[in-house]
Design a protein around this nucleic acid. Structure first.
Length: 858
RNA sequence: GGCCUCGUGGUGGAAUUGGUAGACACAAAGGACUUAAAAUCCUUGCCCAUUUGGGAGUGCCGGUUCGAGUCCGGCCGAGGCUACCA
């Protein structure tokens, strides 16, 4: 009998078996608790990579484990199939993006099948399919009719390489998130979704998501950027040269109003624009600022305008245009309080504006101390506050009716006074901007809008959906945007029948991924989804994906859920109940002497260093995320072919906690391979071959071990500590091995142990698990079995107690479980080692923790 | 600059509400088996001592405690996110 484990044969066999028996096909079953496991669906770029392998392995552990625990598990898969790479490939390969995409889907699906994932493939979807995107066109029309989608001329982020508009979130450090090109500003008419309407709800509901990582919640919370403050109207006293009479500013520090010494406007503020049209010096200034790093150099222009202070009679303050004021935040106008804001202070020093301290840190309430502090701050006329604004706690000074109050009290009083005199009101501001969804592309979902000859806009009639993408004949540069496709945009107005034009922009691809998890519930329905399916399956119980989607995808999906709820589709508030963000898969990088990156498979270890296959020296670089550009990638295909899916899965789960980065090493994967084979050999040697021993010495210990292992693995899976589950299994197998070697268990006993072990392995190495299960005389599938329960915990007989002297462990003694302090203390003192140390010492006290510690203090 | 996370052997990482630090794995060294290799198995793992044994020890300094990797204060370092947000 060949004892070698044939992973290729075994894995193919069970994959086919699962497929034939529709093991993972799921339907609604109200007698069972449901569990919806979802991994972020992949973009079909060509091949799966290790990031996918890790992501889907994590999800599969959860899915199989939950299934074995009696849940009705929904575990679907699909394709995020629209996007730029398809167009790029179309250009280079002269192939329709659709053809390219479906080919990739086929390849990648084959690869995923080889991983042995417990997926319900009957629910597979591809977002580029008209039967998928027709529904989101309907959503858009609903949103348009409800005022949630609108068109606006706006300055957009233009990526000159990808030739498209980017959302704010897609601009990282001023560069396009995909191309890395420096983003330019361009004015275009764009479609927006009113996510800002949901700012408050998106923020407050965040705190109800207690199975989300705090990190993600913090990131979203910062992105929404709520700040509470005031809007204050400043009346312009010399407004002859402009059309406005007031300047409205936003502040979070209304308490510092008496310290206001100037107003600063953004260069894009309407007053700045109006002035720049009239005065050359203004437009020159604005131009000058464009080429300036405003974080280093604060630049201002005195407009000559003055505004009245709302609370100080006859006091006016000057109005500047300043390069550090952002139009995108608040109202594009601020009041400057140099004493308590560093930027304002830098600005004031440069333009010699007065500085009035209004918050004193002096806690003593005597006036003289305040005055002393204040004088100290202003002592150096050239460098007030010693150049450092005071932003700490304190109480109000130099502030009329606010004097003596703390910051919080003063803010409240100012707000009351402002509304009493009609000069302002309380205001909450959010950083979150509306979501710009227009993209000037070809391979995306067409926006279902028609422009009539009179310039008005109508949505496409719903019975004419979907607006399908055209069959493009050839693919060259000009054909990567819908507007360039001959004859596609010409249409007729659905109401008048007159000549009209289609919208040629497509949706941002985050549109598709914002609702795909709903579609999985009713993947073949004529409607986007059946309400009864959503009611049963949603929310997603466990969502797993990369941290890179912490803001974009997850925030858009939460918004979509709330918007669809308000459009009457269902009653759901949040789509993802549990979220887990996995770490990256990393690998050492290598460079040759020409400074070129090398692939790991072209490098070998040699005498504590590395060489290539011509024995040239290779320099080992940093361990970094696997990426094509640095060539530090390992192809999952090769790994599965060589070692099998179980080995790859096992390695993905070993060692590193799932939320941290996992370093791929050749020795690590080899180690996993050894483990799989070791388990198989042990089964062969003991249960499947002639092993005859009636010695039972090891049985009670092994019995206890399997019980604790079941408990620990269960706990560790529930808490996503898969690396610890793996360690639990190693320990178990090591003990089984020891007993087989020492021949200290009967064959029947070992058979039972192996049965439980096979089931415990099921979530991690499902093929090996099934094969073991079958060889142990079972005709059904292991994955359909119940998760092992520990036996009734026999009362523990013994315990080991650490004997400490002054907190330092000196000896470990064994006692009956729950032995009292008296007996433990006596045995401890009788112990030679302890007695030796305690000689000549007086025992002051002892601390006893039952079954754990006896600490003797001397 | 702000917010967040984290510092444990050669490496990845374990350690329950403060209670036996280093589980488990990788790498390394030595050994067994073998004609040999591969595979497999065993042992070792910081310092001192031939052994029994003893000592130091979880980034650094201090504190609380019978007892601190774990709690508190300060410092140093790494990583992530965000960045003129008024």
């Amino acid at each position: 009998m060949s004892s070698r484990y044939n992973h290729k044969k075994v894995e193919a066999f069970w994959q086919q078996k699962w497929a034939e028996s529709k093991t993972f096909q799921t339907t609604i079953n109200k007698n069972k608790n449901k569990f919806y496991v979802l991994e972020m669906f992949p973009y079909p770029s060509g091949k799966i990579h290790m990031g996918h392998v890790r992501n889907y392995t994590l999800g599969d552990v959860v899915a199989r484990y939950k299934k074995m625990n009696g849940f009705n598990v929904l575990h679907p898969m699909g394709w995020d199939a629209f996007g730029l790479p398809a167009e790029n490939a179309a250009l280079t390969e002269k192939k329709h993006p659709e053809k390219w995409t479906y080919q990739n889907i086929k390849t990648m699906k084959d690869q995923l099948l080889k991983m042995g994932l417990s997926l319900d493939w009957d629910r597979e979807i591809a977002t580029c399919h008209p039967e998928y995107y027709r529904h989101e066109q309907k959503f858009f029309i609903d949103m348009f009719n409800a005022g949630l989608a609108y068109k606006k001329e706006s300055e957009v982020n233009w990526d000159p390489v990808d030739k498209t508009v980017l959302a704010n979130e897609q601009v990282i450090d001023g560069k396009g998130w995909r191309s890395g090109a420096i983003v330019e500003k361009k004015k275009l008419s764009q479609w927006f979704l009113k996510i800002s309407k949901y700012s408050e709800e998106l923020l407050s509901d965040l705190y109800k998501l207690d199975s989300w990582p705090n990190k993600v919640k913090t990131m979203q919370s910062n992105w929404i950027g709520k700040s509470v403050g005031a809007e204050i109207n400043f009346e312009i006293t010399n407004s002859k040269k402009i059309s406005t009479k007031k300047i409205k500013v936003f502040t979070t520090r209304p308490d510092t109003i008496f310290g206001a010494t100037f107003i600063a406007l953004s260069s894009e503020h309407e007053i700045s624009i109006e002035l720049s049209k009239k005065e050359k010096s203004v437009s020159n200034f604005i131009k000058e600022c464009e080429n300036l790093d405003s974080e280093k150099i604060k630049n201002g222009y005195d407009t000559g305008l003055k505004v009245r202070h709302p609370f100080i009679e006859n006091k006016t303050i000057p109005v500047y245009i300043a390069n550090f004021v952002l139009m995108e935040y608040g109202l594009g106008a601020i009041f400057g309080c140099p004493a308590h804001d560093q930027r304002d202070l830098d600005f004031s020093i440069k333009y010699d504006l007065p500085v009035i301290p209004v918050i004193s840190p002096v806690l003593d309430e005597s006036k003289s101390d305040e005055n002393k502090w204040c004088a100290e701050q202003l002592k150096n006329k050239k460098n007030p506050m010693n150049g450092r604004a005071y932003v700490g706690e304190g109480h109000l000074i130099n502030s009329g009716f606010l004097n003596g109050k703390n910051i919080e009290e003063a803010s409240l009083i100012v707000l009351q006074e402002l509304s009493r005199v009609g000069a302002g009101n309380k205001k909450t501001n959010y950083k979150l901007r509306d979501w710009g969804i227009s993209r000037q592309r070809f391979w995306g979902c067409p926006i279902p809008i028609i422009y009539r000859e009179d310039g008005t806009i109508v949505p496409v009639n719903e019975d004419e959906l979907p607006v399908k993408l055209p069959e493009a004949k050839s693919f060259d540069e000009s054909a990567t945007a819908l507007k360039n496709i001959d004859g596609w945009k010409e249409t007729k107005c659905p109401k008048t029948g007159k000549k009209a034009f289609r919208e040629t922009d497509t949706f941002d691809t985050f549109f598709e991924s914002s609702w795909y998890y709903f579609r999985y519930c009713s993947p073949r329905s004529n409607k986007p989804f059946e309400k009864k399916d959503i009611d049963y399956w949603l929310p997603v119980d466990q969502y797993i994906g990369g941290i890179e989607h912490a803001i974009l995808h997850l925030l858009y999906s939460r918004f979509f859920t709330k918007a669809l709820r308000d459009l009457g589709y269902f009653d759901l508030n949040e789509p993802f109940k549990g979220l887990f963000t996995q770490g990256m898969v990393t690998h050492q990088t290598y460079k040759n002497s020409n400074n070129e990156w090398l692939e790991p498979k072209d490098v070998k270890a040699f005498n504590n260093s590395y060489v290539d296959f011509n024995n040239n020296v290779v320099e080992a670089g940093k361990v970094e995320k696997m990426s094509k550009s640095k060539k530090n990638v390992v192809d999952p295909n090769d790994i599965i072919d060589l070692y099998g899916a179980d080995t790859a899965r096992w390695f993905m789960l070993s060692d590193s906690p799932p939320e941290r980065d996992l370093e791929w090493t050749e020795s690590g994967i080899a180690g996993s391979f050894k483990f799989i084979n070791k388990v198989w050999e042990l089964l062969q040697k003991s249960v499947l071959e002639n092993y005859k021993h009636d010695n039972k010495n090891g049985e009670s210990q092994l019995d206890e071990k399997i019980n604790t292992t079941i408990n620990q693995i269960t706990k560790n899976i529930e808490s996503f500590h898969f690396n610890k589950s793996i360690a639990n299994l190693y320990e178990l197998i090591n003990l089984i091995q020891k007993n087989i070697k020492e021949k200290s268990c009967s064959k029947e006993f070992l058979k039972n142990i192996f049965k439980k072990t096979a089931l415990l392995l099921q979530p991690f190495t499902p093929h090996l698990s099934e094969e073991m299960w079958k060889r142990l005389d079972n005709s059904n599938l292991a994955v359909n079995e119940s998760w092992p329960k520990p036996l009734e915990l026999k009362e523990k007989k013994y315990c080991k107690i650490a004997i400490q002297i002054n907190g330092k462990t000196r000896e470990i003694l064994e006692f009956d479980f729950d032995e009292g302090e008296k007996v433990v203390g006596e045995s401890a003192l009788a112990n030679i080692k302890i007695a030796k140390i305690l000689k000549d010492k007086k025992i002051k006290r002892t601390i006893f923790v039952p079954n754990k510690v006896l600490n003797i203090v001397s």
